[in-house]
Design a protein around this nucleic acid. Structure first.
Lengths: 360, 360
DNA sequence: ATTAGCACTCTAGCCGCGAGAGTGCTAAGA
DNA sequence: TCTTAGCACTCTCGCGGCTAGAGTGCTAAT
């Protein structure tokens, strides 16, 4: 562990394996990376690295393949993070600039990230529990149903149908929603839920207490329900026919079980590393289906915006949602981490921009 | 073609092949289907069917496999459509009953259909061009941006951001949106777009003509843009690792190109057959990527609702959207057609129900 | 028109083999 | 003590040949 050359060899192995997808031998290493030593020396180092658990050979007398521990060390110490070039940054801006709604933006972001990384990309829309209420609209839909449209400060729009037995008159409804908007705007969702109850009991809205309670519990459940946050996914097809070798098959299943991915990325995106991205390798995901996959995530939409100078100052605020990419354990971590970080920053910018002028 | 037994043989071949996925020989046919004749006779029939283009053998002295023509004849004449059992219908109701919003319903419908058919399922949300306006809400989002939330009679909610240089006052906005709602509700989207222009030019909203135009063109573009209709998909993972044999690979690509699927299903769902479902087999899809796949589609949300007696009375109105399933050409057409039809009917019911009480 | 019998054909799977890549070890040199 | 050249050893991958089995098409009899 003390010798630096060993780790140079480790890095070389990881890099070559990521490129070729095949076990890498000592001679090809000396060919591709001018290490200044002979293949025999490299062999010794590789044997040592294997003893320490960084490498493994699929079978005797084959090349070496990095283990999870090897990838981990590579990601933590050896990977030189290359920030995207200005041209690439501009490309991101162009690609995401023309969006008309938040949903659209996120969908595009997912597509973009999938294309950059060549892997599956996942973008979650801002969690409702961390948003504040901007506007509530109540519209009758049928004889007994109301549609509540809830708009949050992150620009997200949610809708819920409410069943209220005797449908209130239109006048009463508008009066009610006006009051709710006046009293609850700017409050967090759970708080707004409480406030609405009082609106229902007070003043002349007494007969609307049923509606108020329904709306309130809707808000509360939306806030609680992490799973309710939408997820945008892209790039699944590539995964399917690139790595069709059965190893990635369970991953596809997991992807349809959005809940699992959700929880995983959510927790991972909060572990802020120096890079601003979290990486879970193989079993580190604690998810059986992702045993042979790695997840690269980053939160976005931190409340105190990143400084406009763009430097990676430690963002203290908790992220509002996350963006991530999933691929095989032997994925290109450097590129993926850079791309994920860039997209996350861009999205943070978008959301911050929209939020600044909230109470105009 | 005149002999009925030949077609019995054809049906037997198709059924067996759908089950086993392997070329089916004459002897196994006589074993599984008591046709009352010997294998030699069946061999003769099969040779004839091959001459006529209904069957083909992958190589000399192997079993027979249905051709597209064979599947087509099977679907048109030989398949006995089994309506779902009451229990199954109830299961659909249960599965989709707890939905809170239209989006939720459609998402669930896609999942359900995917599970029943074991294939990819696609559900499109009602096309905006065929919907009428129920409500428009305008909310300020930042210093220069407005968020327009548009609710249609099918329960769909769309949002668009508008950029208006001098942000109008809140009072003016509410007054404007009230007028718009009063004048445009119930109109189709293109018509509403025109009406809004007049609202902008008339009365004291004169200074809002810019906003009115922006909103109007938004509505118009939404109505035009077929591609803008959302699509819900499910079951892609099954497809990936069941038929991983490269044949279905291009299909996965096509699925990400939602536009293609969209157009295909849209046109197909309008070709109403006696069953109420449209089937495109292999090259009939006119889509290179779907050369080895079949598509089963049905429109839903016909304006004049299906009679409540549930009988399959010819629904004359054009459908508002579609639901469909995609699988290999050797898929189980009988089950798939039944499932697609059932889900489509259920969705039609949902939408009709919501629509009845529109103008309360 | 159907059927039994038979010769013929084609594929999937298995076995064995040799080439090639890569290792580990040992002994010599710095 | 670290590095390196040389060498014997091991393991997989791919190829050719082979057989068993399933299925066909044809012919002659019913």
């Amino acid at each position: 562990m003390t010798q630096s050359r060993r780790m140079l060899v480790l890095r070389a192995v990881v890099e070559d394996y990521i490129r070729s997808q095949e076990p890498v031998g000592s001679t090809s290493l000396t060919r591709n990376h001018h290490l200044g030593v002979s293949s025999a020396t490299v062999r010794n180092d590789m044997a040592a690295l294997e003893d320490e658990g960084y490498l493994i050979q699929p079978h005797t007398s084959a090349g070496r393949v990095p283990t999870e521990k090897g990838y981990r060390y590579f990601v933590d110490r050896l990977a030189t993070v290359v920030p995207l070039s200005p041209a690439q940054r501009r490309a991101i801006g162009n690609f995401l600039g023309g969006s008309v709604s938040l949903e659209d933006t996120l969908q595009r972001a997912a597509r973009l990230l999938a294309r950059i990384t060549g892997q599956v990309a996942v973008v979650a829309s801002p969690a409702l529990s961390k948003s504040t209420l901007r506007h509530v609209e109540i519209v009758p839909v049928s004889m007994s149903k109301l549609l509540a449209v809830i708009i949050t400060d992150t620009g997200r729009v949610a809708q819920h149908t409410l069943e209220v037995r005797p449908l209130p008159s239109t006048d009463l409804l508008t009066s009610f929603s006006e009051t709710v908007n006046a009293r609850c705007c700017g409050q967090s969702l759970p708080l707004a839920a409480k406030t609405i109850i009082t609106v229902g009991t007070t003043v002349e809205h007494g007969e609307l207490s049923a509606l108020a309670e329904a709306l309130s519990s809707t808000l509360a459940s939306m806030a609680e329900d992490e799973q309710a946050t939408d997820m945008y996914m892209a790039g699944t097809s590539k995964l399917a026919h690139q790595h069709s070798g059965t190893e990635m098959a369970p991953l596809l299943d997991a992807l349809e079980e959005q809940v699992v991915i959700m929880r995983l990325m959510n927790s991972l995106s909060e572990e802020v590393t120096e890079n601003g991205v979290g990486v879970a390798i193989g079993s580190e995901t604690h998810t059986p289906e992702l045993m042979h996959a790695s997840v690269v995530t980053s939160g976005y939409g931190h409340t105190n915006a990143t400084a406009s100078d763009g430097s990676a100052t430690a963002q203290t605020g908790k992220p509002v949602a996350f963006v991530g990419s999933i691929g095989p354990t032997h994925m290109d971590y450097v590129t993926t981490m850079a791309a994920v970080r860039a997209v996350a920053r861009y999205l943070t910018g978008i959301i911050g921009e929209d939020t600044t002028g909230t109470d105009s």
